[in-house]
Design a protein around this nucleic acid. Structure first.
Length: 467
RNA sequence: UCCCUGAUAGCUCAGUCGGUAGAGCAGCGGACUGUUAAUCCGCGUGUCGUUGGUUCGAGUCCAACUCGGGGAGCCA
């Protein structure tokens, strides 16, 4: 590992644990996981977040503040100067023989993080402290690494990163309820003919937080060919599930000149890249997840990195479900959307791996998806994975203005506010396709965490915006 | 939003037939130890989610509400 230069006079613990030779004089800073005190020696297991593992600090009773330091509790913050030496005891290769310990922050008996396992539910109530726990350390390090990997993948493949707006006036994307953004007085909004007068609002029209950057992404794709967005997305849906959050991060690539097959190829390459990246760069944290969060996680990820993704059409999926020798709670009928139980059966039992389902009936899909030649289905795809369900949803976009207009009419969407979107079909239009990947759902898949609230630092869900 | 389920010590939970509450862990004090989420001894800890009802008496039965968890819908 390349040595990291910190700006705070400390050496990261991750670096020390990878040392090849003893070191004489260095300083580490971090938080005590456990303090074990004896008469002749005391130990601190110190963690600084650079890795899952702790560095063992050895305290000699001759230290001037030995009494104080050896009585520190879990969670205390210290700066330790000393020598990195080979550990004479089993359990660790290196340890730090302390010559100077500065106490930066103490704790007391009320500190809620104990040196034992806590439930994830309890951890959510102390989300301001949970980053100091092993599982969340692993999850958030992986989150950071994969966010970097997203940019690296697209950069390596020549995609341009575009920041689409967070405040938007397009209210008709069909992707869910919007959070309203307004500076009007909620108690006494100005009214015209009984209706709220948004002309007097900050933006002089009704605005909300974006539910997707896709439409704007399409504009950039028809100029830069291959683009992606990666940013926060907001849905004011009253969804109370372990897979939905009101604020989440979405990755939305869009490719000009792409059909649905190219879209699927991109999705497959992207997902494989991210999983491979995690396996290579986050092996310690993934090993922790494999041991403590989901048994078999590593085998699952390694299999995905090698697997060829299966593809079936919606129509074929319906046939498979009709043939299934097991009952479903919801009937399988061509023309109705697949239920969670259907998706799980296909991806977990029939294919036992990632599965693209393509070409859905147009009635159950959004207006911008390209109509197929059969006039019944659209060029849409969902990528289903075991446990998480729908990880990616994408489509080839309708580039024919007349067909798009007809679909908007059928869906009851007023074309006027979307004239900018229609314009790229009027002038220099081309086939194009893209998809959306929920970053948190990816993290659930990669870490094995079962609740979306546990893979985003401070989750926003109905009734909860704490911290 | 709907269905199911739960809420008792700091945490995880037990609490029988309705008779005013208990275990492990954590914490604190001590002992011991090159210890490994150490070990051993000792010591606390409660608006039993809230409100109301039934009852001589409610953690326990009933109702409503609040919050958590699981599932569904919506989707990423």
């Amino acid at each position: 590992m390349t040595d990291v230069i910190t700006f705070t006079g400390r050496t990261p613990i991750k670096q020390l644990l990878a040392a090849v030779a003893p070191l004489t004089e260095l300083t580490v800073k971090g938080w005590a996981r456990t303090v074990r005190r004896g008469k002749d020696v005391a130990f601190i297991a110190l963690n600084d977040g650079s890795c899952c593992a702790t560095l063992q600090i050895v305290l000699d009773p001759k230290l001037p503040n030995y009494e104080e330091v050896s009585r520190l509790g879990t969670g205390a913050c210290v700066a330790v100067t000393g020598a990195l030496v080979a550990s004479p005891a089993a359990g660790q290769q290196w340890e730090l023989q302390a010559t100077l310990v500065a106490i930066l922050g103490t704790t007391d008996e009320d500190y809620p993080l104990q040196k034992k396992r806590h439930s994830f539910e309890f951890m959510r109530e102390i989300a301001h402290l949970r980053p100091r726990a092993n599982a969340f350390g692993a999850v958030f390090r992986i989150r950071s690494a994969l966010a970097f990997a997203v940019h690296q993948f697209f950069r390596e493949h020549g995609f341009m990163y575009v920041q689409t707006p967070i405040i938007t006036a397009s209210d008709c994307e069909g992707a869910g309820e919007m959070f309203r953004v307004t500076t009007l007085d909620a108690e006494q909004p100005p009214r015209v003919a009984g209706q709220i007068d948004y002309r007097r609002d900050f933006f002089a029209e009704r605005t909300g937080l974006t539910v997707s950057g896709q439409l704007e992404g399409e504009l950039f794709a028809t100029a830069f060919s291959d683009i992606y967005t990666f940013g926060p997305t907001f849905r004011a849906e009253n969804s109370n599930t372990s897979r939905h959050a009101a604020e989440f991060w979405m990755i939305e690539p869009e490719m000009a000149f792409a059909d649905l097959a190219a879209d699927c190829q991109l999705a497959e390459a992207f997902l494989r890249y991210l999983v491979t990246f995690a396996l290579n760069e986050c092996s310690e944290d993934l090993a922790f997840c494999n041991e403590r969060i989901e048994t078999g996680l590593l085998a699952k990820l390694e299999a995905l990195a090698q697997a060829t993704f299966e593809t079936i059409s919606y129509t074929e999926a319906v046939k498979l479900l009709e043939k299934a020798d097991r009952p479903f709670e919801f009937p399988v009928v061509w023309g109705r959307d697949l239920q969670s139980e259907h998706e799980r059966y296909l991806t977990e039992e029939v294919f036992n791996g990632p599965l693209f389902v393509t070409d859905y009936p147009q009635e159950i899909k959004a207006f911008y998806m390209r109509r197929n030649d059969d006039d019944r289905t659209v060029a849409a795809m969902d990528l289903l994975v075991p446990r998480v369900g729908e990880l990616i949803g994408g489509s080839q976009r309708e580039e024919r203005l007349d067909v798009l207009d007809e679909r908007m009419r059928t869906c009851g969407i007023d074309p006027a506010p979307l004239n900018w979107y229609r314009d790229i079909r009027r002038w220099g239009g081309c086939p194009h396709a893209g998809f959306g990947l929920g970053f948190e759902r990816l993290l659930m898949y990669v870490t094995g965490m079962e609740n979306i609230r546990d893979v985003i630092p401070f989750p926003r869900t109905p009734g909860n915006a704490r911290f």
